[in-house]
């Protein structure tokens, strides 16, 4: 497995109080690819994802050990260090959540919001150019260019999720974390978002957490299989899904696949 690394973890451990949710995770996230993290409910997928931009800090009693490095930016150093600039980190590592969490504001304001927080741009024409650019990236510009003043919550769920992705893109991140980004969407909208992710991977490193095995198989280039807080296997998606090295991946992934299939019938 040869790739340029975007994020690397070294013996990452995470505790919620006395409970250890992640155990000695050492893994490399490839640059400009899609990495899926799969595993049964409660295995630590979202917890791992939230380490990459320190979102777990919001959970009381969380304790982290080990090192986590984001390459291309040496200034950040160990992301797990206490004195890290969290605002700079979360600008570099954007996140999209399960349900589209658009603000109860216009489409324009939803996109301008991040630019203001990070004091990136102030001139109106520059802001508009960035808004156009980000909406074009997510395939919404043609539909929304004349409706930028409309409340974002009036959009369809798929459009709202695209807008959330545009809201991340406008801050020019390098890494985008996606936590079950399609779980609120219907199958057709899901496929369209997956197509969008395949386009975005040319410019960004994406990490997607999904309990949907089929989605991980369809969309990702690399897959990590987590089980009870441990990274059981990491490899190219084709290999993990057709010829896993670990027996546990083989047995558990078959069960998960069947579980997913029964959910879909």
């Amino acid at each position: 497995m040869e790739f340029k690394t975007s994020i690397e973890t070294f013996d990452l451990n995470l505790f919620y109080g006395d409970f250890q949710a992640l155990k000695n995770i050492s893994m490399k996230i490839p640059d400009k690819n899609i990495t899926a993290i799969i595993g049964p409910s409660g295995c630590g997928k979202s917890t791992l994802l939230r380490c990459f931009n320190r979102m777990n800090d919001l959970v009381e009693g969380t304790r982290l050990e080990g090192r986590l490095v984001i390459y291309n930016d040496k200034r950040l150093g160990n992301v797990l260090a206490n004195d890290i600039d969290l605002i700079a980190l979360r600008k570099k590592v954007g996140m999209v959540f399960q349900r589209p969490n658009v603000f109860n504001l216009s489409i324009y304001e939803n996109l301008r919001f991040g630019l203001c927080i990070h004091q990136m741009l102030s001139k109106k024409d520059e802001i508009l150019a960035e808004i156009q650019n980000s909406l074009e990236h997510v395939g919404l510009w043609n539909d929304l260019k004349d409706k930028l003043g409309k409340n974002a919550r009036s959009l369809t769920l798929e459009q709202q999720q695209r807008l959330c992705i545009a809201r991340v893109l406008i801050l020019k991140p390098e890494i985008i974390l996606l936590d079950e980004p399609c779980s609120a969407l219907d199958p057709m909208a899901t496929l369209k978002i997956e197509e969008l992710l395949r386009i975005l991977r040319k410019e960004y490193s994406l990490v997607i957490v999904t309990h949907n095995m089929q989605q991980a198989a369809r969309v990702s280039d690399y897959t990590g299989f987590l089980y009870i807080g441990e990274l059981v296997e990491f490899g190219e998606t084709t290999q993990v899904f057709t010829n896993p090295k670990e027996k546990l991946t083989e047995n558990r992934s078959i069960l998960l696949w069947q579980e997913n299939a029964s959910e879909n019938t």
Binding site: Q214, A217, R218, T237, T238, F241, T242
Partner: peptide, 9 residues
């Protein structure tokens, strides 16, 4: 063929 069946359902 096998990869496509496994990955794309």
């Amino acid at each position: 063929c096998i990869n496509l069946i496994a990955l794309q359902q």
